[in-house]
Design a protein around this nucleic acid. Structure first.
Lengths: 227, 227
DNA sequence: ACAAAAGTGTTTTACATACACCCATGG
DNA sequence: CCATGGGTGTATGTAAAACACTTTTGT
């Protein structure tokens, strides 16, 4: 079987983080040409799967390991890259930037976090890819407990609340939000408290993933209505 | 820029149809080797987009044109095809088989409909791809009005009801279902009736796509709860 | 007249929404 | 004692769920 096809295949990752009440995205600066900012990613090796490729590229280019990773969409327009035909399988990744902030800041300027609403000019069609990623994130936090992947392991309830408000870009009723989330039974109280300047210290919670998986087995479905 | 990558890229389509109260899938018989059944699809040409590639392959191999088409998932395992490394971008397609039944039946045996629960042995990982497609279909009919793409332009309400029951594999309350669907205001009564043997003739309805698009603009969201 | 499928409303129940005050700490 | 953020309960509205009989046709 002989196929003459001159297309290369790459992976790119839309890595979201949450920091200072902002949704951020992890970008790298290209080393060639206009040195534009771009999504971390690169060509798939002959003997690795797509998932393996993104994980590898993320590690190589930014040093991070995603808490959550899912395939997003495959971009196959004919003129994505002016140099040659490249089809890119985009991934959505979530990480807690607190774990990597220093690294990114010190690793010179080749990997940096950007506020999602204040992006630099981007290479290729990466702006479109980010848009698709953001859309997916917005949709998905409503029916999958993935928001926790952006927070510290132990977090005050207000972090979760702010996260949702920021991503959905909408004010939520504190009492109703808390009531709803707690009703699922997938949040575990810890005996720790967090003080931030003035104000009453906040109890810290943990996402009980094991419990969630268990409930999921029994037909439970995480779902928030605040559409 | 020189990349030594030896991977080919293909597209495959999971084409669903609905006939005789069954969800069916369109398969083609391979011309080489074990002549196994496989999803319609093939290699992407250098100068066509992914969407164009599926549309072309569907036409070439089965003669059909999908009513609805969306990208499903990209399969990139390393051993999908024993002959060479092929990454496949899978698509989900919906058509009304009534429009194509004769063609498929007469075109010899190279394209045929199969009941989704009675599939032959399939080539490559196509069984997995179909599973993902079916899952997507099940999820999506609940929040997008895509079920209509599987029915005739004019259809009795019972067709819609049966379609949902078949796909979701669950009994639905007729009154509640009808009430809900009609409440959206996206179904248009016609003045035609359909008789089938005995029983009261059923009024025929049409899906008003224009109206739906209009409502969608204004923030309306098609959503069925029967989870 | 009976079998078969179409058509139709009301009651009950559950969940989303709206809403305001007290608590614990730091300065 | 004041500013700041954390923590809590109830009443109302809306939509889902449960439920059975009548209508129109063919045989």
């Amino acid at each position: 079987m002989k196929i003459t096809q001159n297309i290369k295949i790459a992976v790119d990752a839309v890595v979201f983080g949450y920091h200072n009440n902002q949704i951020q995205i992890l970008l790298i600066q290209q080393k060639f040409g206009k040195k534009q900012w771009a999504l971390p990613g690169g060509f798939v090796l002959d003997k690795e799967t797509l998932d393996e490729a993104v994980i590898r590229e993320l590690k190589e280019e930014t040093g991070v390991k995603a808490n959550y990773l899912e395939q997003l969409y495959t971009f196959g327009a004919t003129q994505r890259d002016e140099r040659l035909r490249v089809i890119s399988v985009a991934y959505l990744a979530l990480i807690n930037p607190n774990n990597y902030i220093l690294k990114a800041d010190t690793d010179a300027k080749d990997a940096q976090w950007f506020d999602i609403y204040d992006l630099p000019e981007l290479a290729f069609d990466h702006k479109d890819i980010i848009a698709v990623g953001l859309e997916r994130l917005k949709a998905k936090i409503n029916y999958q407990p993935i928001g926790f992947e952006l927070l510290n392991t132990k977090f005050p309830f207000s972090d979760l609340e702010n996260l949702y408000q920021t991503i959905l870009n909408k004010k939520l009723d504190r009492r109703n939000f808390r009531k709803k989330l707690l009703s699922f039974g997938i949040l575990q109280e810890t005996d720790q408290y967090q003080k931030v300047g003035s104000g009453r210290p906040a109890k810290l919670f943990k996402f009980n993933k094991k419990k969630y998986k268990e409930l999921e087995q029994n037909g439970f479905h995480f779902e928030i209505k605040f559409a």
